[in-house]
Write a protein that binds this DNA or RNA. Structure first.
Lengths: 106, 106
DNA sequence: AATATAAGCAACTAATTGGTTGCACAAAAG
DNA sequence: CTTTTGTGCAACCAATTAGTTGCTTATATT
């Protein structure tokens, strides 16, 4: 099972779920009300999000509250870090041109 | 065609391509050498990356150099911004507990 | 104890995905 | 002008995905 964070956030419904529970932990039923699908479909998304540890469960009787696991979200941020220097540099465009020219000479 | 940035970076090969061309613009052939697949497969990935505007082409004779479009990468960063405040706050964990309790009372 | 509610799991299905091979076309090299 | 090289595109295929319906289990409610 290839459950990585990037594959998890690829689905728009899952991104919406993450946003919702970021504001407030919710049960599958409560979440399902926000979408045009069945509760089972939402449940499946939650399973995927749980498997890659983007969300955690808080059991409360027969209800299960899903909450965002912020730590895992940082993983995406960490990946972005590799590119961040590129857009923080105002010479970004120029760099690319120079690299292309250099490559041409070979 | 549902070509959004998140779906594009879901594939590990595409993420690797982005990293490679971030360092230096490259042709499909040059890129394919880095992977265990055919040139056509890489070409397909490049098409997807082009469609969602994560990469741009620089034509040079019959060669096509693909370079990273940093602007589009910022879109992911912008999405992350919605969550960033959560992990920048040291009270994050506590917040979630309080929100859950609040929800219980209803 | 009987019923209603919350949630997970399994089987099935349609659509999408990542890969392949084969072909077409344009530009460079002989 | 013919051949080689770089690339894109289409057709096909196996695997995965997102969704469905139906069932089971566990906790509340009456």
């Amino acid at each position: 099972m290839r459950r990585d964070v990037f594959q998890a956030i690829a689905d728009p419904t899952r991104r919406a779920i993450l946003l919702l529970i970021a504001a407030q932990a919710m049960t599958p039923n409560a979440l399902a009300e926000h979408f045009d699908t069945t509760r089972q479909a939402v449940s499946k998304h939650l399973r995927i999000l749980t498997e890659c540890e983007l969300v955690k469960q808080d059991h409360n009787g027969r209800e299960i509250y899903y909450r965002l696991e912020v730590t895992k979200m940082k993983e995406i941020d960490k990946w972005l870090d590799q590119f961040r220097k590129l857009w923080e540099s105002r010479f970004n465009e120029l760099d690319n041109v120079l690299l292309t020219i250099k490559n041409d000479k070979k």
